[in-house]
Design a protein around this nucleic acid. Structure first.
Length: 495
RNA sequence: GCGGCAGUAGCUCAGUGGUAGAGCUUCAGUUUCCCAAACUGAAGGUCGUGGGUUCGAUUCCCAUUUGCCGCUCCA
């Protein structure tokens, strides 16, 4: 149950078979950990996006959205810490095949020296490591490891590969001409820019633009949906971990000292959002971080029970004033807010400060996977007379790619004409789908597999009294309703 | 990145050192008045890719790529 590989595989197959997700560039054998959303997947994804965007902006009084560029000035990533913290040199032991982060290996060695009394050696090694890391001197680092006879804990040998760099961030050349300059070791040329590894920085660097032009008063938030890119050492796990993915983030700017209460508030608010989709509470849990990232003073994940177990779906981080302070330092531009509100403690305005930030960050692709995982169901409908089954995606109606299928019972006797009129009337209001091929049962099952919540069927009685049957996906029950009521029925279900 | 397993039609899979087959799917019809119907006909594969052995390779060998499982990694 907690780790149902077969179900996960079935979901992946279903996503491909019914046009939700295809491997990227499949005709060229695909591209590892990159996926395309198909005709159904793009609709579902868009619906998830819209639902998030509406609840995080339109339904809030003090949150606005932006859409920042993926390219950002390279200094952004120095300020954020991504350049220094996430370009980890790695080294493999050839005997045990175990891979180490070079800094971890050397630090472990230094730790060991300290416990055996060689404090001096430990400090020397650490100092040399820092100097070599700063220069990206991999040969020097390897020499440091070899000179000190550092061993692999598993194999006990010092049989190491060369040191290689594993970059979290993708980089590219800015400008149409490649520079002739030879890039420094481990780095790029002068025109190197990164593809953003998180959308958050696009919000931080626009903090004052939005605050001033929107006359925003703290506390307020800036939301953004956008692509981000990360190299992962292993990527697998379908769309759970992708090189190119989409984040839905909101950074909430607050008065210093109030971070605890806002953190708790957003933690609760975001869980409520998930549960508002009708997914049972037991599929979700919080995971509080014990070891915190360099920018956070509190952090938790909202985890979802995927078929591969409970995994991170959304993060809520109390980022302190780390990011704005860093940008202020690197850009030399003040990132302060003047707070006119009266501080009851002093009777005076709060004055100038760098705001604190609470971040909510959800992976859109992971949310997609969560929705599909929960919706996917294989049902046994066998009767004593004959075996039968169906695959149904029980999407919340508001997320379903297609809301309504219009199906004439037969393709003659004027039934298609009536059905087409229904299509014409309803398709301006929501996504409809028309189908007259094959038996009605087969058409129902196809719609189940796409998660279409409603099917209306035009039959001979329709010609008499202008009523149709509407069939509900989950119960498979039908009711007869006037054609004129269809719009209202569907709109109220997806509202 | 390492190790193991695998890749034949859109899907699930047979098969053979002599250039491939089934079911489902898809498409065109006939029939069909409510939950995967039947019948007729059609389409669809340079057997993952590149080399090698061979008179001849989808089959044997090597490399490569993709996927799965395990390990590793994952602010």
């Amino acid at each position: 149950m907690a780790n149902d590989t077969n179900k996960f595989q079935a979901i992946i197959s279903h996503c491909k078979e019914y046009g939700f997700i295809f491997p990227s560039s499949e005709i060229y054998d695909g591209l590892q950990a990159v996926y395309d959303y198909g005709q159904m997947g793009s609709e579902l994804k868009k619906n998830i996006k819209d639902y998030w965007w509406k609840s995080m902006t339109q339904l809030q009084d003090n949150i606005v959205g932006i859409d920042a560029a993926i390219f950002m000035h390279p200094t952004t990533w120095k300020a954020s810490g991504h350049v220094d913290n996430f370009n980890d040199p790695m080294i493999d032991n050839k005997d045990s095949k175990k891979r180490y982060r070079v800094d971890h290996l050397i630090e472990a060695f230094a730790e060991e020296q300290k416990t055996t009394g060689n404090e001096q050696l430990a400090n020397d090694v650490l100092a040399q490591m820092d100097a070599l890391l700063a220069k990206d001197d991999f040969a020097g680092l390897k020499k440091l490891i070899e000179d000190n006879k550092m061993k692999c804990a598993i194999s006990g040998t010092g049989n190491w590969t060369d040191i290689r760099q594993f970059n979290l961030m993708f980089s590219t050349e800015f400008g149409s001409m490649e520079t002739a300059e030879i890039p420094p070791a481990g780095g790029g040329g002068a025109n190197k820019v990164y593809l953003r590894p998180e959308t958050a920085q696009g919000i931080f660097v626009n903090f004052l633009n939005v605050q001033k032009t929107g006359r925003m008063k703290i506390p307020f938030g800036i939301a953004q949906i956008g692509k981000a890119f990360r190299n992962e050492i292993v990527a697998r796990q379908f769309i759970f971990r992708m090189r190119e993915f989409e984040q839905m983030e909101m950074q909430f700017f607050i008065r210093p000292g109030t971070q605890k209460e806002w953190y708790e508030k957003w933690k609760a608010t975001r869980l409520e959002w998930h549960q508002s989709l009708g997914i049972p509470a037991e599929k979700y849990r919080y995971h509080d971080h014990v070891k915190l990232a360099h920018y956070a003073d509190a952090a938790c994940d909202i985890e979802f029970e995927f078929p591969i177990g409970f995994k991170e779906l959304e993060g809520i981080h109390s980022r302190t004033d780390f990011d704005l302070k860093q940008h202020q330092e690197y850009s030399k531009k003040k990132q302060q807010y003047f707070d006119n509100d009266i501080d009851p403690a002093t009777g005076k305005p709060y004055g100038n400060y760098i705001p604190y930030v609470i971040e909510t960050s959800i992976g859109l692709d992971r949310m997609f996977l969560a929705v599909v995982s929960h919706a996917y169901e294989e049902q046994d409908l066998s009767t004593p007379e004959k075996p039968d089954s169906r695959v149904v995606l029980k999407f919340p109606a508001k997320l379903a790619p297609i809301k309504l299928a219009v199906l004439p019972l037969t393709k003659k006797d004027g039934l298609p004409e009536i059905a087409e009129q229904i299509m014409t009337d309803l398709k301006p209001h929501f996504r409809c789908f028309y189908e007259e091929k094959d038996s009605i049962g087969k058409r129902y099952r196809r719609m189940d597999a796409l998660g279409t919540p409603f099917c209306v069927t035009v039959d001979h009685q329709t010609k008499e009294d202008n009523t149709v049957t509407i069939r509900h996906r989950d119960s498979m029950e039908q009711e007869r309703v006037p054609i004129g009521k269809l719009k209202e029925i569907v709109l109220s279900a997806i509202g």
